[in-house]
């Protein structure tokens, strides 16, 4: 794969030194990768990059979620722009190692910063940003907060270019995008991981980009509806995909087995919280132990489990 060679060259700094290319990623000597994002071809014309299961920091350029792109006869569609403009630009560079075709669409699978802080990188490409019909509202109420709250962890240099860029094309229900003899099925779901989850299915290779409806390894985060998410799992597992690109986890992953781990976590969390509610345990106590038996199965458990339990408690109290 040509990009790998180029990347290796970039890493050594030889090309950089010879050509005098001013490249911020090299100049800043980021401990992460340099040059094009190291994407992997997972199916014919389908490429994806596996993010690191970690919190977004200045050390990892916010590259914690999976992003990808699909190349049609006429154009390219990108699925999520990553957690920084630096990552977004590296993704564009990765696309350019594969094709010169225009980037027609940037699809945002949902509102979270690790998936769309890179949006601003795509402005010069002319890509139309595509999102769930609830995404504009979600970004309106959270965007400024996200920019503020990630500042400490990501640092001024990385945050400087990041802007909240809302979608220009809205998906309600299901819609097809055509990349030239290549159709993608987009589906806007009811509240699950968030209230603006959008998935992408490549009809040609039956590759399913789930967004954060599917987590593997990285503990799922609850920002929509636990009950909605649990209910959605049955529908999702019925989708006839060959492979999936989860929002977080191995690229690619077998389908629908990719849903098994999170399904078990949701069941345990819901069971523990329901018991606490029935026993009259206050929220502040219940969230300290709920879901604890799932700890060995996940990364970032300490970072997110109590938060999930809190959201689950507030939701399940209304059952």
């Amino acid at each position: 794969m040509s990009y790998a060679t180029r990347r290796d060259v970039l890493k050594t700094g030889v090309l950089f030194a010879c050509c005098g290319v001013s490249h911020a990623r090299l100049a800043m000597a980021q401990p992460g990768h340099s040059g094009p994002l190291p994407v992997k071809q997972i199916a014919d014309g389908v490429f994806a990059f596996a993010g690191t299961p970690a919190m977004m920091t200045d050390q990892n350029d916010g590259e914690i979620c999976n992003v990808g792109f699909i190349i049609g006869d006429e154009a390219v569609a990108v699925i999520d722009s990553g957690g920084s403009v630096v990552e977004g630009k590296a993704l564009i560079a990765a696309i350019r190692t594969q094709t010169d075709r225009p980037i027609r669409y940037l699809i945002n699978t949902h509102m979270h910063p690790d998936h769309l802080f890179g949006n601003a990188a795509f402005e010069s490409t002319g890509a139309i940003i595509v999102g769930h019909h609830n995404l504009p509202r979600a970004l309106e109420s959270r965007g400024s907060y996200y920019l503020q709250s990630y500042h400490d962890a990501m640092g001024s240099d990385l945050m400087a270019d990041i802007r909240i860029v809302p979608p220009a094309k809205i998906i309600t229900g299901e819609e097809e995008l055509d990349l030239g003899n290549r159709k993608l099925s987009l589906k806007a779901w009811k509240p699950a991981h968030t209230d603006n989850d959008l998935s992408v299915f490549d009809q040609h290779t039956k590759t399913f980009f789930t967004g954060d409806l599917c987590f593997i390894g990285h503990l799922p985060t609850m920002d929509g509806s636990l009950l909605g998410w649990i209910a959605l799992l049955a529908t999702l597992s019925g989708i006839k995909a060959e492979v999936a690109v989860p929002g977080h986890g191995p690229v690619s992953s077998p389908w629908p087995q990719a849903l098994e781990a999170e399904s078990q976590y949701f069941d345990v969390l819901a069971r523990d919280i329901r018991k606490a509610i029935a026993d009259g345990v206050p929220m502040s106590d219940a969230v300290k132990s709920a879901g604890e038996s799932e700890r060995p199965n996940w990364k970032l458990f300490d970072e997110y489990n109590q938060r999930n339990a809190t959201a689950a408690f507030a939701e399940l109290e209304w059952e």
């Binding site: 919190m55 979270h112 910063p113 690790d114 609830n134 509202r137 979600a138 109420s141 959270r142 907060y145 996200y146 709250s149 962890a153 509240p191 968030t194 209230d195 985060t221 609850m222 920002d223 929509g224 509806s225 909605g228 970072e303 997110y304 938060r307 959201a311 939701e315």
Partner: peptide, 16 residues
């Protein structure tokens, strides 16, 4: 202390 990650003081499920 403020929460880490993508938690925001906003509604999760507005329509509901």
């Amino acid at each position: 202390k403020a929460s880490g990650g993508c938690s925001a003081p906003a509604m999760k499920n507005t329509d509901e």
